[in-house]
Design a protein around this nucleic acid. Structure first.
Lengths: 132, 132
DNA sequence: GAGGGCAGTTACCACCTGGATACCACTGAA
DNA sequence: TTCAGTGGTATCCAGGTGGTAACTGCCCTC
């Protein structure tokens, strides 16, 4: 698999709300990976479909981090073509609750957050402190 | 105020659990600042007491970010010596809920997390993927 | 009028994260 | 024998984040 084609913007591009939120779960991609796995195990290349913007190196990094923390399991099936499956562990599944609470907060306060940033920008323009 | 004295380790040093957690609220210090403000307004230098490891530059950065997002308010009192007070806004106070959920998750699964890291380290030593 | 506290700011720098690009080993099918 | 697919590694690099050190302007007190 060569990765020469420029990765096109996708559903998680810069406009994705999550990029603005004052929460982070693990590294940059961890939360999205967990969301991708919440409905069942997926293979490496299946994860790359919704997460087109992630290069394999970075996806591997994230998955290793989640595996290290016991949130995700990695199983190699040797049936006849090798196949690697990633799945949420019970611990990983239990993280969906705090994530859901964070999502609910974001949904409930999204407009306030945007208004706050906008009016801050009006009061002190150009002070765009770094994003979260 | 010169900052020549090496900042001593304090209650939030490298051993602080929060450094290991798969959550982040805002930037590195945001969650601690919000915790420091949850019982009432504090002044800049009062925040520096529990957060001894934060230099004034970084504390200012964090506070500006929280202010921009409407989570923290900054009020200058001109009574006769200038005084600046930081306080949680209602929006900031509402973030305590997702934070508490995250803390509860951490408390409930702390041992599992440590065990997972330890056994991962045993299975593949030296692969210490970066922390969260 | 010197010094000290308050609330920062400025300049500079090291490290970490994430991304781009390229390459690799294995398998099975054509 | 070549080709495509799977599941990655290896290198290199830019930008972001946080840290050190030093300096500032203002007011108050000694």
């Amino acid at each position: 698999m060569t990765h020469r084609q420029p990765l096109p913007p996708d559903m998680f591009d810069e406009l994705c709300p999550s990029a603005l939120l004052p929460f982070r779960f693990g590294d940059k991609w961890a939360a999205l990976i967990i969301r991708c796995l919440q409905d069942g195990p997926r293979r490496f290349s299946q994860l790359r479909v919704p997460l087109r913007r992630v290069t394999p190196k970075v996806l591997t990094q994230s998955l290793r981090g989640l595996e290290r923390d016991g949130l995700v399991s990695r199983t190699v099936h040797a049936d006849p073509a090798p196949r690697v499956e990633y799945a949420l562990t019970p611990l990983g599944r239990s993280m969906l609750e705090p994530m859901d609470v964070a999502c609910a907060w974001a949904a409930a306060h999204w407009d306030e957050l945007l208004d706050a940033r906008e009016s801050y920008e009006r009061r002190s323009p150009g002070q765009g402190t770094r994003g979260n």
